[in-house]
Design a protein around this nucleic acid. Structure first.
Length: 261
DNA sequence: ACCTATGTTATCGC
DNA sequence: GGCGATAACATAGG
């Protein structure tokens, strides 16, 4: 489920479990998940080091080693992490497992192989190469309005464009647009000041709420679309029907009555 | 067997 | 270069 809130929850999880434990070895079970690094390199660079800190930018997660480079984790659509303690077994989809000298381990799992694991020397350089825009939660209201308002694409496309805003994906973009009562196909540059302000405020509200609830959709407020993100579901606000339409090639759920064009 | 899916990247045409 | 549409990647579940 990795969008910004999911990756932030992963980050906190790793921060609370896997810090400052000496890495004893790295198992690469699926070489295809590695990008710009060989399994040999990964397995030789990390032993003796430990994870000393974490950083997240958009959907990218970085585990610092304190030795001038970080492990970069990207999760695609199905990535996850698990801290393995005594007796926990690795699963079929654990693509890379970082073992610690205390017997525990951190597993990066991914059903589909759309994600990536890599080593990154300089995070800023890496993000520059990826053309990542500012993180969604680092934007000021004015910067946000300028970045979004200058786009000629549909608002949903602009919000999901990682070079404009890093971190928003298909699911949370639907929620943000729903909360803001804005149709996903409205032209970004045609939004009013009021609409842009609402978008900015709801973006922060939705992302923070999702993080606060550990991205458990069943714990989100009743006024949220996510728990009912299904075609034909009842709109939590007007009791109309939720519609599904492909926007920018992605399945998009919205309430045509609340989110007029 | 067919369709769907939380992401990214490349390609084609306008 | 921007933008929309489309496909590709790989896999599990309905």
């Amino acid at each position: 489920m990795p969008e910004l809130p999911d990756v932030e929850v992963f980050r906190k999880y790793i921060e609370s479990k896997a810090m400052n434990q000496e890495i004893s070895g790295v198992d690469v079970n699926t070489k295809r998940i590695l990008k710009n690094v060989t399994s040999k390199k990964l397995a030789s660079a990390l032993p003796g080091l430990s994870f000393t800190g974490t950083k997240r930018h958009g959907k990218y997660l970085f585990l610092d080693t304190g030795d001038g480079f970080s492990v970069m984790l990207h999760f695609g659509m199905t990535g996850d992490v698990r801290y393995l303690t005594d007796g926990d077994k690795t699963g079929k989809h654990d693509r890379v497992v970082f073992h610690f000298d205390n017997g525990k381990a951190l597993a990066y799992s991914n059903v589909r192989l759309l994600g990536a694991v890599s080593l990154v020397k300089d995070i800023g350089t890496f993000l520059g190469e990826k053309e990542a825009g500012p993180d969604a939660l680092d934007y000021s209201n004015d910067q946000f309005k300028e970045a979004v308002g200058s786009r000629k694409s549909m608002i949903k496309t602009a919000l999901m464009d990682q070079s404009v805003i890093a971190g928003l994906g298909n699911v949370y973009t639907d929620e943000i647009l729903y909360q803001s009562r804005i149709h996903p196909e409205k032209k970004a540059s045609g939004l009013s000041e009021k609409e842009k302000n609402a978008l900015f405020n709801n973006m922060r509200k939705v992302l923070k709420k999702a993080i606060e609830k550990d991205t458990d959709v069943s714990r989100l407020p009743r006024t949220y679309l996510l728990p009912r993100r299904k075609e034909g579901a009842e709109c939590p606000s007007c009791s109309g029907k939720i519609e599904k339409k492909y926007v920018s090639g992605r399945p998009t759920y919205y309430c045509p009555r609340c989110q007029g064009k």
